[in-house]
Design a protein around this nucleic acid. Structure first.
Lengths: 344, 344
DNA sequence: CTGAAAGCGCTAACAT
DNA sequence: ATGTTAGCGCTTTCAG
């Protein structure tokens, strides 16, 4: 069932091995392998051939220590399982693609304590920059970020005070924007469905924005329903059934994310609710799988990919003339009315 | 728009700083920070207080170089955007949780060449092990993996020859299993819908298994339809419309993944197709959002979380008595008939 | 264009 | 239980 492979005995190759194999000094081999220009084509060729033949892979641990710089960017997000963060990461990867910087991902599960651990771990690799979701951190996390001596970009959210730079949208404003749209369309009895969000600060801010926006029109949320874990689509159905059973006279349901919104939409269509005539629906995020639903769910695009790109550009010093630190980029999310809010 | 923060001037803290701050030798400080037992409670306390007060974060670059070992596990997957790999990563994270090992993720976009780059980059950090999706790699990638001198676990797929260990399912067998179920249920005119899969070897193997399985019953695929990019749900709809327009007499549609299958299902229900009576449907993966669909799509569970757990356990040497290398774990995927295959 | 020497910050191995 | 020494594999710096 188990054996020791021959490779286990082989000492990893070093620069010295390559050096000896091609009769060029370690130093020059190092130059070639780092693609520096100041090497003659002849020796360059010799070195590359030898390195390739041996299968040499440089040791970045040693390189990083010697050069005191590491081409890593720490990226810390709460989750990978909802469709939102992978898209942010794509944006980051894309923007970092041609910079020589490499993203490294860490996941916190929406736990501040876990965030602290992940951060500690990642900063101990002395990355060239850090991108981290949200503005809420433990004191220890803030201290680490402040003392790291590298550019920090907090992303997704712009409602608060950043440590260094920030790229995001105002979730509070998004909530208010949705409130305006809902009221403008003539809905009056509004329910909210979302995650249990003691730890999801952005969902909380959207809810806050929604209630504040409604309040401006003298309206209050009629009811709320929360869930945790499980298949979001299914939860969306269940919560919808529950809240409508409790309050049959609701005329609008606002979901804290598109996935549960999609579940709710499917439920309502099945049960024959008149959407958007008697019952309006909306989600949040603008995930592209909404396009395949029987009816397009109203939503607000959270600019996820764009946020990733801009954050990465700040770290890479692109479009800032190489200046680092203290940028504030607030994107304006677009409300996509779809088919589930009736025209005013 | 931009400023230099004060922290930029601050030299990163070293062990020496902590040492001086608490009057204990660097060596002992190092011991405390690595939670070694051979330090007196008194000095331990003193050191911890000082380290915390200063906000010291250890330098793993230096530590890794000195100790010649790094608590990182390289994890390389093709994509994060379909729901399948995040679940594998969750399994890996969970299993690695209590081992002191830390996963680092890399993404290849299903490109062999990109895989090679990512691998090179990750191996240059001298991780303690590597987990990589699939058995198909470039020669250079194979060479790197073979020479890395660390445990390698190839995951997801068991149809082929692993470099070292493998944890996965047979996609060929999964295809055949589905063929059996389809034929047993009495369907005869079968179409296949999937990704353009020159690079998705597992989808290709499932299709191969399907056609071979059908062939055993004297059947051939009637038609196929492929897509690339975009919203999978929407693509599922479009492809379904296309293939049914071309071949209205198809009685079964096999989708290479659940997401396009879900799109197809929604389309068929909308158009009033008799599912599963006149038209059967099936997908692949067993993603849990299927639970929220109007009708549950037949699928085969790809054991994604479990694969992650087992792969991580192999790397960590759990349940193998610490023996490393050459394990073969083939999981048996379960066919979930759902509601879209009629009962035999 | 190439080479030699010094040292990055930490830990293994060996004292004490 | 604590301290000392040497060196991990590379790159910076300076010399040729």
């Amino acid at each position: 069932m188990s054996h020791t492979r021959p490779t286990d005995l082989r000492r990893p190759l070093t620069l010295r091995d390559v050096s000896e194999a091609c009769g060029v000094s370690e130093m020059t081999v190092s130059r070639v392998l780092r693609n520096r220009e100041d090497v003659s084509p002849a020796t360059r060729e010799k070195v590359q051939t030898a390195a390739r033949a041996l299968g040499y892979v440089p040791n970045k641990i040693a390189g990083g220590l010697a050069s005191q710089q590491v081409n890593l960017v720490a990226v810390i997000v709460p989750s990978l399982s909802n469709m939102v963060f992978p898209e942010v990461l794509s944006g980051i990867s894309a923007a970092l693609g041609d910079t020589g910087l490499q993203p490294v991902f860490g996941v916190t599960g929406y736990k501040a304590e876990k965030e602290e651990e992940v951060l500690y771990e990642m900063l101990s690799w002395r990355p060239s920059g850090a991108i981290i979701a949200g503005l809420e951190h433990t004191d220890a996390s803030r201290a680490m970020l402040e003392n790291a001596g590298i550019p920090i970009v907090e992303i997704m959210d712009s409602d608060g005070t950043p440590i260094d730079s920030v790229v995001g949208i105002s979730h509070r404003a998004a909530g208010m924007q949705m409130a305006e749209a809902i009221v403008a369309a003539g809905y009056r009895r509004i329910g909210f469905l979302g995650t249990k969000m003691s730890d999801d600060h952005r969902a909380r801010k959207r809810l806050q924005g929604l209630t504040d926006g409604l309040a401006e029109h003298g309206l209050e949320l009629i009811d709320t329903e929360f869930y945790t874990g499980g298949s979001a689509l299914k939860k969306g159905r269940e919560m919808t059934e529950t809240i409508l059973a409790r309050n049959p006279d609701l005329d609008f349901l606002y979901y804290s994310n598109d996935m549960i919104g999609a579940g709710g939409l499917l439920y309502c269509l099945e049960k024959g609710y008149d959407v958007p005539g008697k019952l309006g629906l909306a989600g949040f995020n603008g995930v592209d799988f909404l396009e395949g639903l029987p009816m397009q769910l109203a939503t607000i695009d959270a600019c996820r990919y764009e946020i990733g790109v801009q954050a990465a550009n700040l770290i890479a010093g692109k479009e800032t003339g190489g200046l680092i630190g203290g940028h504030r980029i607030e994107l304006t999310p677009e409300l996509v009315p779809g088919d589930t809010i009736r025209k005013a």
